[in-house]
């Protein structure tokens, strides 16, 4: 299975929506506490267990998240620790990048998500307690969403409704927003502790998962939000990221400070269907390929990026 060793600690990994073999990785020096960051664009060798770096970009501060554009195959957007949001064109060499940089967030930007349906906008969420909406053709943010009372660790678009997104915050609330409305349309007090991540189901646009400092992943249906559909126990520490599969309706991947990546099927009794312990430090980034069913990638503070097929051992060579 492909493994890539980065010079800095990994924070996030994303498969390209255009090329099966391409990934972007966000990394940060000194665990993202102090120092520089770097974005790597990786290529998987066809048919062989190799991975090569095609280009990398240095940043003055940690890169906490990265996402691909859904409208331009070579465009990347990065969430930076100094509060900036930067756009890169991987078709251009490092000296020409970033092609744009926005400095609006007052604190660290934790997440960035591109709109998969409208394909003209993206969201960022920040430790300044806000989420910002950006359009690719605008010089500044279009809107700022200010209801959260603590760090917003994730903001993610609904896969079918182009104006709807969810945000997960350290204020222990999950909020659902419609950008056409002045305020959030729903507030779910999803956990008793900070919520570190959320993701929408790809097949049912009313279902989301949240992951928390309380070590659980919960699955919610906005049509009956009082009680979660499922509570997934199994991680030994805070669950840093959660991701719904693009290929199987009820399959969820999660990664945790307990250094493991887990696979869950929230609709079966024994929900934990897979556990991978390949990381030797906090596992903080997880993604599943849209183009290749079952292909997964993870990254962690051990400076490694793994790409593997579900059911296989990521460390197998």
């Amino acid at each position: 299975m492909p493994v890539f060793k980065a010079p800095f600690n990994g924070y996030s990994v994303k498969f390209s929506p255009f090329y099966e073999s391409r990934l972007a990785v966000a990394t940060a020096q000194n665990f993202g506490i102090l120092g520089n960051g770097r974005i790597h664009v990786l290529e998987l060798a066809p048919g062989a267990p190799g991975v090569t770096e095609s280009v990398s970009y240095d940043t003055a501060d940690a890169v906490y998240d990265v996402c691909w554009s859904e409208s331009h195959d070579s465009v990347l957007i990065a969430a930076i620790g100094d509060g900036s949001v930067k756009i890169y064109d991987t078709a251009l060499p490092p000296p020409s990048n970033p092609i744009r940089s926005f400095q609006e967030h007052a604190r660290e930007v934790q997440s960035v998500d591109y709109n998969p349906t409208r394909r003209d906008s993206f969201l960022t969420s920040s430790w300044d307690d806000t989420v910002k909406l950006w359009a690719m053709d605008r010089p500044a943010s279009v809107r700022t969403f200010k209801e959260h009372a603590y760090c917003v660790y994730q903001a993610v678009w609904n896969p079918k409704h182009g104006d709807v997104f969810a945000s997960a915050s350290g204020d222990c609330t999950l909020r659902i927003w419609d950008v056409r409305e002045p305020g959030s349309t729903m507030i779910i007090p999803a956990h008793d502790f900070e919520i570190l991540s959320c993701d929408w189901n790809k097949y049912d646009d009313c279902i989301l998962a949240t992951s928390s400092v309380d070590k659980t992943v919960k699955v919610w249906d906005v049509r009956s939000y009082r009680v979660p559909l499922a509570v997934l126990n199994g991680h030994g520490y805070a669950v840093r990221k959660v991701k719904f599969s693009p290929h199987r309706r009820s399959l969820i991947a999660s990664c945790s400070y307990d250094m493991s990546v887990c696979l869950w099927d929230y609709m079966v009794e024994d929900a934990l269907v897979g556990r991978y312990d390949h990381h030797t430090e906090f596992a903080v980034g997880i993604d599943m390929s849209v183009l290749v069913e079952g292909l997964m990638a993870s990254t962690g503070w051990d400076e490694l990026v793994y790409v593997w097929q579900q059911g296989m051992d990521p460390r197998a060579s």
């Binding site: 665990f31 309380d214 805070a238």
Partner: peptide
């Protein structure tokens, strides 16, 4: 940043 990370690892009142 250390403080925010620590809160993930030592959640309040646990």
């Amino acid at each position: 940043r250390q403080k925010i990370l620590l809160r993930h690892l030592n959640p309040v009142s646990s």
